[in-house]
Design a protein around this nucleic acid. Structure first.
Lengths: 230, 230
DNA sequence: TCCAGAAGATGACAAATATCATAGTCAGGG
DNA sequence: CCCTGACTATGATATTTGTCATCTTCTGGA
């Protein structure tokens, strides 16, 4: 399968692996394993020690953390081209988040040895990973501010816009990534009933429309105004 | 002033600068400038382009972001030994946070050139910075979960424990870092009045005691139980 | 030392959000 | 094809949190 060689993998263009040399890439390719996951399957669970990272070829995974009250908080949705588990491997800590597939996925598992040796010898690669993490950190800061300063309604509206911008639309114009109402509430950080109620309200106001679990944005402008506080 | 040479600075032991070589450190030392700030002085403001990073020798700075509704959200408190502004310099973006002194401070300003050249040539340094950022990212994830899943009361209680663990106590047993009620509410992500009310409640329940702005923890165990949800 | 403005405190009330209950709807396996 | 369990939806209600108003208490200069 020539297509399964990292050297030829297009996904690589989107993540830090592009800073690897030809030889480094060859090593990674030789040591990696490919894995298929079904919706709902875990890549790893919170607290688990990771022996490597996952490079997403297809599908989407939610990264979430269980809170004391038994609810999951989704911290990030990772999709094609993203590398999952970097943070834990780099910090040499067990995973602080669980990763679960929210759609069928295809991922490559890269053993940490390949990563670590490259980190120690290729400053370009390390710098590239660092830049990615700097970006993630900024996003995390933004999420903190949103969580504490925006209303649930604003956060739901923002989530829909985020889903559109990051995962796009399907052929019928619905958000391509379909999340359960519970997952939506876990992204937004609210009770499932509250999220459902707000979805109903948005429907009534003509901001969105739905078909089963699928959600379509009808009036993005108004949705965005809502996010900004009218 | 031999004491102002980075090579001899003890602070360095606590941050990524320890991974620099003797020569790199010399360059940093030659290009750095020392700055004294009074409580309330800004190191930089959100949106500003940073020409370097700040290494904290003394005092504490709050890193905060202004939200749409006009409230600041404090994302992090940085103290002795921490480096501020790394993220922006590395990502080559303008600052996403404002940094303001919450106590009198002494900081060293290190121009970004010294940082960038070392990042490109010394993998150990880059890796060290990366590890720090991985740690910050984990902390940010935890904050997100706390913000969305814990009550204001729990977050206030947690803030006091955090302040004790990270900044210690003064000679009288009060929290060594004294924040205004407004700053406390901005850390916790709530209205100032709500924070004040909860402080009053904690006082009545004998969990804490106060003297002016100073806060002393009386019953850490109960405070911790409260954080964990009884 | 005194005064003005800021910060702290508290009540009354409004708004946002969670919780509990219940019913309808959907999707997949026998 | 139908049944069952999970998901969605909505009402009623309780709880939490924010807002506005008012008062008090500090605190740092003139």
């Amino acid at each position: 399968m020539e297509n399964s060689r990292c050297e030829n993998c297009i996904i690589r263009q989107f993540n830090s692996l592009r800073a690897m040399s030809r030889e480094e890439l060859k090593k990674v390719s030789d040591s990696k394993t490919t894995k298929k996951l079904k919706k709902g399957d875990p890549l790893f669970e919170e607290g688990e020690k990771l022996n490597g990272v996952f490079c997403v070829r297809n599908g989407v995974s939610k990264l979430s953390k269980l809170s004391a009250n038994g609810k999951d908080q989704i911290v990030k949705l990772a999709t094609k081209g993203e590398v999952i588990g970097q943070r834990s491997v780099i910090a040499e800590e067990s995973a602080n988040l669980s990763a679960i597939a929210v759609s069928d996925m295809e991922v490559c598992f890269i053993p940490k040895e390949s990563i670590n040796t490259t980190l120690q010898s290729n400053p370009n690669f390390t710098l590239e990973v660092l830049r990615h993490m700097a970006h993630d950190l900024k996003e995390a800061d933004d999420v903190i501010v949103n969580m504490s300063q925006k209303t649930v309604k604003q956060r739901v509206a923002e989530a829909f816009i985020y889903l559109k911008n990051n995962f796009g639309l399907d052929e019928d114009g619905f958000l391509a990534l379909t999340l359960s109402r519970e997952d939506i509430s876990n992204v937004v950080g609210t009770a499932t009933e509250s999220a459902i109620r707000i979805i109903s309200e948005f429907k009534k106001k003509g901001l969105i429309h739905t078909s089963g679990k699928k959600i379509g944005i009808k009036n993005e402008k108004k949705l965005q105004e809502l996010v900004n506080g009218f």
